[in-house]
Every structure is written in structure tokens, then in C-alpha cells.
Simulated assay, not measured.
Amino acid sequence: MAILGVLLVLNFLSIEYSPPGYLFIGNAENGIRFLALFLTGALHQLYRDKISYSAVGAAICLFATVICMLVPPIAETGLCVFGAYVILWFALHGPLGSLGGLPKSDISYGLYLYGWPIQSLIVYYANGIPPMALTFVALPLAALCGWISWQLIEQPALALKNRAAAMPV
């Protein structure tokens, strides 16, 4: 937790340091930002038994996130700290988590896998597309590709894995 605290402070202070050879290892400021985001998720996982996700907590964190987003120097830190709670509450207990009669599909890996190539193609062919428009165009396409991937590749592969695991040796 101390490491995350230091990273959030460094990110807040916007320390710009790129060591020699940064072209090979990336920009240090981005490294701090992404490591802080990763550690936030890791801490939520580590303390999942101690963190109580509630609608009230999510509403408070959403409000705090919006306030932080209006103040540029603390926007990223606020999104990292408060936004993570909102995202995880939504994923674990939000309104979409209780959609009963729908078939279970896990498109998360496909969404991750196809999101970047789809966005890249859209940016290439629609040069200058605003980020919000890019999101509204790319997200449904990536979700569709993720669903197709789940249906045709991932779910059958998991069924084979489960069948192989059940076979006597």
C-alpha cells in the first residue's frame, strides 16, 4: 500500500523523468501512472474480503470521481482511487450483474483482445475521430467480436478442458 501511495503522489506531482534509453523502456511518467492503476486493482483483490462494496459507497465514490475530474491536477489520482471502487462495484454488484435469464457469456477477454485493433483501424480510417465517438463506435464492435470469440473459441475450448480434466488417468 505504501508503494501505491508513493506512486499516486508522484503521479499527482507529475514528475517527468525519462532516463536515458527511455525509447526502449517507455516513458517513466506513464510507467508511474500504469503501475498505480495496476496496484490499485491488486489492492482491491488483496483486500477483497475487507472491502465492502455497496451502492452507497459507489455513489459517494462516483461523486468524488466527478469532482476530481473537474480539477485537472487531481483528475488521474481521483480516478485511480475513487473510480476503481465504482468500476469494481459495478462489475461485482451493479445492475448488470443480476440479469437473470440471459445466457452466461464471458466476453471480457475478447473485449480486451479485439478492442485495440478495432480502435486502431477506426482511427486509421476515420482520422481525427474524437475519443468519445471512437468509444461509441469501437466498444460495440469489440463486444460483438468478444461474444463471437466466446461462442466459437473460448467456450468450446473450456468444455474440452473440463472434459479432459474429468478423464481418468
Rank of each mutant, 00 (worst) to 15 (best):
L13K: 12
L141A: 13
R33K: 14
Q155S: 13
A42F: 14
L8E: 02
F90L: 15
W147Y: 06
I3P: 02
M69T: 10
T40S: 15
L79P: 00
Q119L: 06
P19E: 12
L88K: 06
A2V: 13
F12E: 08
V66I: 15
N162R: 14
A159Q: 14
Y109L: 10
P103Q: 04
R163N: 11
F38E: 01
I15S: 02
P73L: 01
I51R: 06
T65L: 12
F34C: 02
L10G: 06
M132R: 05
Y17A: 11
L10Y: 03
G21F: 08
I15H: 07
W89S: 06
I107A: 13
P72N: 04
M1T: 10
L102C: 04
Y109K: 07
W89M: 09
Y53W: 06
G128H: 04
E16Q: 12
G21P: 09
A91R: 10
W89F: 15
I3T: 13
G146Y: 03
R33T: 09
G101R: 09
L158S: 02
A91E: 07
Y124N: 10
C80Q: 12
A36E: 04
S108A: 11
A59H: 03
V169T: 13
G83N: 09
N11W: 10
G57C: 07
G94S: 10
Y124P: 00
F38N: 08
C145Y: 05
Y114D: 01
I60P: 05
A36G: 08
F82P: 06
L79K: 05
A75P: 00
P73M: 02
I87G: 00
Y109N: 05
H93Q: 14
A58S: 09
A164G: 08
V137Y: 11
E16G: 05
I60W: 01
L23C: 07
E16A: 12
D106A: 05
